[in-house]
Amino acid sequence: MKRAILPLLISSFLVSIPAYAQDSGVGKRVDRLEKEMRAVQRKVFPGGSTKFFEPDIAPENAATSAPSTTTSAVTDLIARVDALERSMADLTGQVEQNGFRLKQIEDKMAAMETPGSSASTGGTSVSSSVSSSVSSSAPAAGASTSSATATPDPERVEVVASIVMPDTGDAGEDAYIYGYRLWEAKYFPEAQAQLKKAAADHPDHRRASFSQNLLGRAYLDDGKPALASVALYENYQKMPRGERAPDSLYFLSTALVQLGKKTDACRVLGELQDVYPDEASGRLSDRIASGKSAAGCK
């Protein structure tokens, strides 16, 4: 019974050695323990089995015993730990990069919630000098700006009345289309009043950007570039994601050229290219080229 139990205890003891193989001086400790175990074997079990411990002197023809697995086990463990450390370093770097990118996205999202912020446009904002130019070009409050306030011409009133507002059930769409029809018929003061009302009454409608942009164009066509610059700039500032925000920058440059502010007009066209590159290189490319030519942009 003792012969069966002792080898098992010895075997269990040696199996645990690789787990501590990285301790300081572990090699010497393992050698000492092995010698002590061999001495125990020779003393307790003379001529016993070599299943667990190789004899001090092996027969000449005896097969070479298997090398100790301690060194290879420790080497494998060290290699695995090194690989884990490298993986952890890579993961840490990725986490830090993702955290930084997430912070940037959160900052941009927060800025987009602020009306008129530069981040809400997806690019840089119109320069302060251009903003100042637009502000300085605006007419004084209370000034008479529309011939619609003059005594109405009965014949004109009758013709305007013949232009019917559509009734499709979409109030925002109908309001814009009616303003468009007035503009198309060249009744610019009436179109201005209608488009201004359409944008104010339906600020969240898809056509709000269309209404505000066409309002600026109606002022331009009516020979009022100062009012046009204000309306167009407000469309870009308040609804930068609107479908006609890029167009408003182009027509804003046209208004600034008419106001003698060609340098600012060039800056606005540059803004258009930076913030809306797809539109600038696509459907508005010809207009941008003609606008730069008119402004003398380099």
Rank of each mutant, 00 (worst) to 15 (best):
D170H: 08
A265K: 04
G291Q: 07
P152N: 01
S128E: 09
A185Q: 04
L252C: 04
A110V: 07
D76R: 13
F100P: 02
S125H: 05
A199W: 08
S293H: 00
A62M: 02
L256V: 08
T71L: 12
N98Y: 14
S129Q: 12
T151P: 04
E85K: 08
M239I: 10
S162D: 05
G296N: 08
E34M: 13
L256A: 03
A110D: 02
S133F: 12
A199I: 05
Q212C: 07
V230N: 00
I10H: 03
S146E: 01
T75N: 11
E54Q: 13
E279P: 06
V126T: 04
C266M: 01
L214N: 03
E34R: 01
M165F: 03
D56W: 04
K238F: 15
G216Q: 00
S49L: 09
G25F: 11
T263P: 02
S146H: 03
E54G: 13
T92P: 04
A191Y: 01
M239W: 13
T69D: 08
L182S: 01
R181H: 10
L232V: 06
F210L: 00
G296C: 07
V81S: 14
K298G: 07
L182E: 00
S118Q: 09
T151F: 00
L33Y: 08
A289M: 13
A141D: 10
D153A: 01
S24N: 09
S290K: 12
A280N: 01
A148F: 02
F53Y: 03
Q273L: 08
D221Q: 01
V74W: 13
P166H: 12
D31I: 03
P166Q: 09
V15Q: 00
K196P: 00
G296V: 13
A208Q: 05
S132W: 11
T75M: 15
S68P: 09
V164Y: 08
A4S: 11
V130R: 02
S137I: 14
L215Q: 03
D167F: 12
P203T: 02
I105F: 08
N98W: 10
A175G: 00
A58D: 05
Y236P: 09
E271R: 10
I57F: 08
A83R: 15
S253T: 10
I288C: 03
G223P: 00
A62R: 02
L227G: 06
A89F: 14
Y219R: 04
G93V: 07
A161M: 05
L227R: 05
D31Q: 07
R287P: 06
V164S: 11
S290P: 05
E279M: 09
L182W: 02
G99C: 10
P225V: 11
K224A: 01
V26I: 15
G291N: 06
Y233D: 14
A39W: 14
S131H: 09
D274Y: 01
G282W: 12
K298Q: 02
S127E: 08
P67Q: 00
G169F: 02
S118L: 13
S127L: 12
I78R: 15
P246Y: 13
T71I: 15
G116V: 14
A161T: 00
D204M: 07
G48F: 15
A110E: 05
